[in-house]
Design a binder for these strands. Structure first.
Ligand SMILES: [Mn+2]
Ligand SMILES: [Mn+2]
Ligand SMILES: [Mn+2]
Ligand SMILES: [Mn+2]
Lengths: 226, 226
DNA sequence: GACATTTTTTAGTCTTGGCTAAAAATAGAC
DNA sequence: GTCTATTTTTAGCCAAGACTAAAAAATGTC
């Protein structure tokens, strides 16, 4: 039977599996801010439920059922985030914690109604793709860290690697939000920083760290638009 | 510290206190579908937290703090119910269980934003008043059970005594919803049933039980409206 | 006022999901 | 391959909040 804790573990396993292929207990300890013994415990519980396959010392991976639950929870999380930002006017740095609770409420029907109410959004407020009701993990985009942009590129922010509060608030202070298009004016070799130009003409330099956490697309430069 | 279970108990105590004045353990056992020992346990916890005053064998009542938490939880419950009905198009008989979970999510700020998004509703989908952010328990209405209506009255449904699924679905099948105005055609003495007339002209007889659970206002008969 | 019934409390158990500390297994360095 | 450091598991404990069963208190009846 599903509980809040079990859903959180499944979601964490899904994410780690997707970003690093293999899921160690250590990775779960970090992702969930818990202790090794707690992870071992829960993995046994999840294995007994048939949601993961667990080989002691070898790692864990989701079964079909486990993946379905994880995707459903992630879908709910991201839909509620959209709700909080689009309908209740929260900032993108304020919604994660509430979504972490809301994702455990409601069934498929409620989720689908919420999805329809929000006009079937494809991405959440952090640019992350929202799984469909059928568990389709879409995306299809090929985003680039801004650190790889070249001088002269016009780049549009489409996502963030790290959606922690601190980083998002850093972007807020820089006046950077999803969808914003910036121009790369200059790139410093020695520290990886780049000088960017905002649509309103202001310029600022961003650190390598910051750039690596911004996921962008290059914008076609519409040649002589007349 | 607040937990789901503690908030549910405080809410139950608030309701019982309001409808019967005195709160026995037995009443809580029934309201919460639990066991006497569980109630005694939780009352100790709540008393230790300073949310209730509990005299063994004598009953329990909310402190100022306890009442504030209970009202806040009830406010959240009813606002989420409005959301589910008004925005996600659920029926009034489908929303209680989800609200029972949603009421434990979010803080004052989220609740106030939700309230604003819903245009500050005064009543929930069952006609129950929604406490304000300041804990004002408004109402002010003086609703009458439909069993007390007289032949010739035009009555408008404003609330229900019992908002259990079964009763609400019974009203659904009769085509009765909040705000509907009915006319009392006939009253049978021996079983307390009454024959009512719908705006579309159809007539049906409702049992005493049903009538007692419908809270109504008499509608002014706008004499010759010209 | 004694006795039976009902209500409440106490005592003790269980499950979930945390934790620490120690043991065992694995992986990395040489 | 051995030794060391890291990771994982095991063992045992804890808190919250359920439960059952039995004891104690309160209530109602005659
Ligand atoms: Mn969560
Ligand atoms: Mn997100
Ligand atoms: Mn609840
Ligand atoms: Mn309600």
């Amino acid at each position: 039977m599903q509980t809040i804790s079990r859903e959180d573990y499944l979601k964490a396993i899904l994410k780690i599996e997707e970003e690093s292929g293999t899921v160690s207990n250590q990775a779960l300890v970090e992702k969930l801010s818990t202790r090794p013994a707690s992870v071992t415990n829960m993995l046994h519980t999840l294995a007994d439920a048939g949601w993961v396959e667990h080989l002691a010392y070898k790692g864990v991976h989701l079964t079909q059922t486990g993946k379905a639950i994880a995707l459903s929870t992630l879908r709910k999380h991201r839909l509620w985030e959209v709700f909080l930002v689009e309908k209740l006017n929260f900032n993108w740095d304020e919604v994660h914690q509430w979504a972490e609770d809301l994702e455990h409420v409601g069934d498929e029907e409620l989720t689908n109604r919420l999805d329809a109410f929000l006009d079937h959004p494809a991405f959440d407020p952090h640019g992350d793709p929202i799984p469909t009701a059928q568990g389709q993990w879409s995306d299809g985009r090929n985003l680039l860290p801004a650190s790889q942009a070249d001088v002269g590129d016009r780049i549009q922010l489409k996502g963030v690697v790290n959606s922690g509060e601190a980083f998002l608030q850093h972007l807020n202070r820089l006046g950077i939000k999803l969808g914003l298009t910036l121009e790369v004016l200059q790139a410093l070799e020695f520290d990886g920083s780049k000088t960017l130009k905002w649509p309103d003409g202001t310029e600022a330099s961003l650190s390598k760290q910051t750039l690596q956490n911004m996921l962008i697309e290059r914008v076609e430069i519409k040649s002589n638009k007349r």
